[in-house]
């Protein structure tokens, strides 16, 4: 049996879900026996390859994220929403209650911590924020969701080990699932 390929992605989130993934500790050796992690936030520069499992952390907040997630969906056999930001936008989506211009002005121009020179960032290399933040399932088809802020390491390992052993994970129990 050939090894499966796993990729992990960090979109609009705080990387806490990736920290939780690292919290599976020595069990990562079990994962490594069955799969290669071919792409993750510390693997630099490569185009997102074809994978069996993509773990996606974070919401869709910008044009860059949108392009990325559409590409990831094409490249992945199984796409997993990892954590509350990916599933329900969580803290990243708290700007959705306001319009984008007000949010940016409050952050960069009118912020109390700013001096008078506060200005809106405008550089071609910066990603363009979308008007609203979207959870993954509003943009692409998602196969599994692991809720939590962050999801527990046990839940992440459970889902990975089930999928790597060709079983279907069942997250319905409260001890595996976690909101907030």
């Amino acid at each position: 049996m050939s090894k499966k390929k796993i990729a992990t992605v960090w979109l609009g989130g705080c990387s806490g879900c990736h920290m939780s993934l690292l919290d599976i500790d020595e069990r990562i050796l079990e994962v490594a026996q069955l799969a290669d992690i071919v792409k993750c936030p510390i693997v630099d520069g490569k185009e997102f390859p074809e994978v069996d499992i993509a773990l996606v952390e974070g919401a869709i907040t910008s044009d860059e994220h949108l392009k990325e997630i559409l590409h990831i969906r094409k490249q992945s056999k199984i796409l997993i929403s990892l954590g509350d930001c990916a599933i329900m936008t969580n803290v990243t989506g708290m700007r959705n209650y306001f319009n984008l211009k007000d949010v940016l002005e409050t952050s960069y121009v009118g912020s109390i911590s700013n001096d008078d020179a506060g200005e809106m960032p405008n550089h071609w290399a910066l990603l363009k924020l979308k008007d609203k933040v979207y959870p993954l399932q509003e943009i692409v088809e998602v196969d599994y969701s692991i809720p939590g802020c962050p999801p527990s390491a046990d839940a992440i390992f459970y889902v990975l080990s089930e999928l790597l052993n060709d079983r279907i994970p069942d997250l319905s129990e409260a001890k595996k699932m976690k909101h907030g």
């Binding site: 929403s81 959705n96 692991i146």
Partner: peptide, 13 residues
């Protein structure tokens, strides 16, 4: 057993 929400969020102010 809710793991995600199938409806669009309203995000009211």
């Amino acid at each position: 057993k809710m793991d995600h929400i199938r409806y669009p969020y309203l995000f009211p102010q």
